[in-house]
Simulated scan of single mutants.
Amino acid sequence: MQRDTLKTWFLVHKWTSLVCTLFLLMLCVTGLPLVFWEEISHLTGAEPEVAPVAADAQPADIDELVRTALAEYPGDVPLFFGWDDHSPSVYVNTGARPDTPPPEMHTAIMHGYTGEVLPAPQFNEGVMYFLYRLHTDVFVGLPGMLFLGAMALLFAVAIVSGLVLYGPFMRKLPFGTLRTGRSRRLAWLDLHNVLGIVTLGWAFVVGITGAINTLAGPLEQAWQAEQLGEFAARYEGRPRPSQLQLASLDDAVATARAAEPGMTPAFVSFPGTGYSGDHHYGVFMHGNTPLTERLYRPVLIDAETGELTARPQLPTYMTVLLLSQPLHFGNYGGMPLKVLWALLDLLTILVLASGLYLWFKRGNTEARVREIERMGEAGIDEGARA
């Protein structure tokens, strides 16, 4: 590789790494417990105990469950109703107005068959929610999400440029060489290079999926404008139906089940929440496999008449978003994949920390480029002397 080209790649790696490293360290540290969010919630009691369902039990009426939730929070309106795929519990999100943001929502968790209200903390409270907000938007909403997305993209560039530099620097050294007998900085450099290559694929995937996830808000708004706009035009000039004018939600869900017999409902959005316009229930159906349970098919039900309006297809960009979200946290393969994600996360923290150490012990750019060239030319000898 030519000296000028090598110098350019070194500068790209240096500055992209420096700009994003502190933020990536924060994301790796906060992301580690988030990988085990469900398990931590169960151990700490944040996930309520749900009594088993009797063999002949029938699901409770959904409308009655919504009324129970509203009784818990007088003055609120219903926003979302959802099912837990792994237990017979259901949840109802309520808020002061239809466009209530998640940090201000209330949540009632109930047994889906008995209607019993289950004691559980609010999802938007506690240490895990604090870590989640810090990890996703640093408590400033969309600007924070987009900023972290930019840092994730810089991280991807740093990974690619690091791979380019790894070739000439380490091509004549045995893989995994750690030269500990010469200088501390050289040992840290070898550790940085080895761990960087080991975690390269994982770090790139997590970085790119993280960047995609930060676009969730704009992508959802684009989908709503694109897919729901044509249905909203049919109701132009009509006010949003009041709570008393809403058709039976239980019947709406039954209609959606009949329309998509191979799928099960995941959650329902009420009119005004942004997920189904101002005049529809949005019954979001999904599959039953680890992959298809992440892919939703919205079924729009007229909120006043209860009639099926449409079954719009999710665009490709929404499918990519839905698939990237669980992949980012290793939620596809159960506990083994989560443990692997955690180990790779810890190794990435070491890569970032060693990169910071090397920067503090840095020389000038020309010296670093000469070092890369020298190691590429005499790597075997250097390794033998270590």
Score class of each variant (00 low, 15 high):
148 L>F: 12
130 F>Y: 13
104 E>N: 12
159 I>Y: 00
134 L>M: 14
152 A>F: 06
112 G>P: 03
140 V>M: 12
200 L>E: 02
160 V>N: 03
168 P>I: 13
199 T>N: 10
222 A>Q: 07
110 M>C: 02
165 L>R: 00
205 V>L: 14
205 V>P: 00
173 L>E: 01
158 A>E: 03
117 V>D: 04
216 A>T: 11
222 A>F: 04
168 P>T: 11
231 F>S: 03
200 L>N: 09
137 D>K: 02
191 L>Q: 11
121 P>H: 01
111 H>Q: 05
204 F>V: 13
226 E>C: 05
163 L>M: 13
162 G>W: 03
213 N>T: 06
153 L>A: 12
235 Y>V: 05
130 F>K: 09
118 L>N: 00
167 G>Y: 15
130 F>G: 14
212 I>S: 01
205 V>F: 08
165 L>Q: 01
236 E>S: 12
132 Y>W: 13
136 T>V: 11
180 T>F: 15
135 H>K: 09
205 V>G: 00
221 Q>T: 07
125 E>F: 08
174 P>I: 01
207 G>K: 00
230 E>A: 14
144 G>T: 05
194 V>H: 06
205 V>K: 04
114 T>I: 08
104 E>K: 13
135 H>A: 09
116 E>L: 03
227 Q>I: 06
167 G>Q: 14
160 V>Q: 01
228 L>G: 01
133 R>E: 08
221 Q>S: 11
119 P>Y: 01
168 P>E: 05
176 G>K: 07
233 A>K: 15
148 L>H: 00
164 V>D: 02
200 L>S: 15
220 E>K: 10
160 V>R: 06
143 P>M: 11
134 L>F: 12
115 G>Q: 05
166 Y>R: 04
225 A>K: 13
214 T>I: 00
164 V>R: 05
155 F>D: 01
225 A>D: 09
117 V>I: 14
194 V>S: 10
173 L>W: 02
198 V>R: 02
223 W>G: 03
229 G>M: 11
168 P>W: 08
215 L>C: 11
148 L>P: 00
194 V>C: 12
116 E>W: 02
222 A>W: 12
186 L>D: 06
